[in-house]
Amino acid sequence: MSLCLPGLGQLMAGSRWCVPWFAGAVCLWYIVNTSGLPVAASIGAVFSVLLALLSAEHAKRLLEPSRSEKVERSKPRVRVRCKEVGRTAVDLQIELFLDRPASEVWSEMAEFTQFTCIDPFHDRVIVQAAELRPGVDLVLVHRIFGFRFLRFGRLLKWNEGHGYAFSDLSGSSKWHGFPHVFFYSVESTSDGVLQSSRLTVSVRGKWTAPWAPRCVGMWWLRYVIYEHARLLRKIL
């Protein structure tokens, strides 16, 4: 919506931020239409696209879930690492240092379908069996730039109280479309007085797009993993 009219997405999200976005759009329209510059139309078009993209991104962030405002917690410290392994493999890792006991974090993590949706692309996770157990197939509903598509995986490991792992593969083949595995784990870092824990999210996968340069792929993956870390930090 904000791509069509900056501020509309914010309005639909019930945010007062719609006012400055609307004002910005009107100002831009006024400036472009009143200035007699010959390049005004092309500059206006570029700025309109930029404004629309920024507004859409802002609207998307407004709609992201966040922790309850009643819960007063300091935001966790985050460490992100991106590593290229061999010719095609990548290893991305997020570490969140939380001022909460591991058991409390695990209680949130154990809500598998909800917790695994704290991801820039995961829209919904469907467990393909009545019971969540290692070996069960998963449907990972992805949403990127408004487009919804399915990827498929399997719950590989479930270590009660500590973590789990699952795969995220393309529907057409295991060797295409960035096949990767998520590892979620939580461990206590309490020193007896302070209750703290460390949540680690690792993503190990294979860059399979030969048409895209590896460096471009790494930039994209870095952006995605930083977004993932931002969302986790916002919610936990």
Partner: peptide, 11 residues
């Protein structure tokens, strides 16, 4: 051989 849950139409 992809699993589904007959009781859950979402699958």
């Amino acid at each position: 051989q992809f699993q589904f849950n007959p009781d859950n139409p979402q699958t």
